[in-house]
Amino acid sequence: MAIEGDVGSGLIAIGAGLAVGLTGLGAGMAEKDVGAAAVGAITEDPTIFGKAMIFMVLPETIVIFGLVIAIMGIFVM
């Protein structure tokens, strides 16, 4: 299979992939504990579902940073 494009574009693509992939892993590791705690708290008091949900999605912001870097890498650089 022939590979098209120059080396620079390839490195940018790898960088973008790493930015999204590694931040995704980080967010997943953070959400593991936050999610478990949120479910535990909701079990005791179902009225805090909304608040628990907000805490649950907070680590997702890390992935957004990764995504922004990836987009910048591909479209701006």
Binding site: A37, G40, E44
Partner: peptide, 18 residues
């Protein structure tokens, strides 16, 4: 991240709520 270490986050959140 196996279950050997224990589910501290879940259990601690429950006991804190209690």
């Amino acid at each position: 991240r196996n279950g050997r270490k224990g589910n501290y986050a879940y259990t601690v959140a429950r006991v804190k709520a209690k």
